[in-house]
């Protein structure tokens, strides 16, 4: 493999982790047909978390409004499928472009100021979009949501079935593809320069990294990926609603990323699996008070220290990895 080794030690395990995730995902397709819709959610949330990790974990940009791009992806994909064309891949590309354009336009906002300013303007952008979607009800359906999204078969071959098998496989494929691309991106010189900016912005500037241009670029890319995640949600559920843009969505995704850990991409995937499984289980037990458990998790995680938690979650995985390495490389 070419390219310098990332400084963060967890990133080194990622290449093998990729195989493990692939294996687990494939096994899940065969063994857990009842849970396709839940696993579809996991894949989408994982992709969304990966997009946030690109800016938070690698470039150190804090955002309280990443749902803006996710929600824009949801609505773009839904509207495109409804009014223009039902092809899923085409819809995803359009959703990605729309979200990336918004990212590019709002990147200016995150280049200046302190963390607090950044939190505020990202939150502000998300709130403006939420207001827009709410007010433009002739286009978006307002608070009732946008219904009647009909998707064409994937590649003209696989129709979206009731059990959600096609939907899950489709989301999973996109997730793995994007993970692969994201890993290439963060291991590239571009990704290295982002980490340099994250660790010491002044020094990065001094060695000639065009800080603002790089930050704007990764913000745009991250927005595009979030748009794809949103597009997947709209396409696989045939529905778009306001809660895609809600503040809750931005907070959830932060929690997902914090559960899994930032700065090595797979944290988003691990976090999404844990988060969605807990959501599924806890909201079956106490449907209304799910928010309480989210809050408790956030408080406990921060008090316990985020890094320690990541290590605790990863320890069984690293054991597995060691095992895989002890034998002759990745077997699957």
């Amino acid at each position: 493999m070419s390219g310098p080794q990332p400084a963060f030690p967890l990133a080194r395990v990622s290449r093998r982790a990729e195989w493990i995730i692939l294996a687990v995902a494939l096994v899940s397709v065969l063994l857990l047909p009842r849970y396709y819709p839940v696993m579809n959610q996991m894949a989408i949330i994982a992709l969304f978390a990966v997009s946030l990790d690109l800016i938070l974990g690698y470039a150190g940009i804090v955002s309280l409004g990443h749902a803006a791009f996710f929600g824009l992806g949801v609505y773009t994909a839904a509207l495109f499928a409804k009014h223009v064309h039902g092809d899923p891949f085409l819809g995803l590309v359009i959703a990605a472009i729309a979200a990336a354009l918004l990212g590019l336009a709002t990147a200016v906002l995150i280049l200046r100021g302190t963390d607090l300013t950044r939190l505020m303007v990202t939150l502000g952008v998300a709130l403006i979009l939420l207001e827009l979607a709410n007010k433009l009800d002739w286009l978006t359906g307002g608070a009732d949501g946008l219904q009647g999204v009909v998707m064409a078969p994937v590649l003209g071959l696989f129709t979206f079935d009731m059990a959600g098998r096609t939907a899950y496989l489709y989301s999973l494929t996109i997730l793995l593809l994007m993970l692969f691309l994201a890993r290439r991106l963060v291991a590239s010189p571009f990704g290295m320069s982002l980490q340099a900016i994250r660790d010491n912005r002044l020094r990065a500037e001094a060695i000639g990294i065009p800080v603002n241009a790089r930050l704007a670029a990764i913000y745009t890319i991250s927005a595009g990926v979030a748009g794809i995640a949103g597009g997947l949600l709209a396409q696989t559920t045939s529905f778009a609603s306001l809660d895609a843009l809600d503040f809750q969505r931005s907070a959830d995704i932060l929690l997902v990323l914090v559960i899994g850990g930032t700065g090595y991409l797979f944290g988003g995937v691990i976090g999404a699996v844990i988060f969605t499984a807990m959501h599924h289980w806890l909201s079956a037990v106490t449907p209304q008070y799910w928010q309480f458990w989210i809050g408790l998790m956030l408080v406990v995680i921060v008090l316990a220290g985020r890094e320690r938690l990541v290590r605790a979650i990863l320890s069984p995985f690293t054991w597995l990895l060691g095992l895989a390495r002890g034998r002759s490389g990745p077997a699957k």
Binding site: L64, L254, L298, L303
Partner: peptide, 13 residues
């Protein structure tokens, strides 16, 4: 931020 959002959620619920 994470901590205090958590607290706010708990208060709401």
């Amino acid at each position: 931020v994470l901590f205090s959002i958590g607290l706010a959620f708990m208060a709401v619920a």
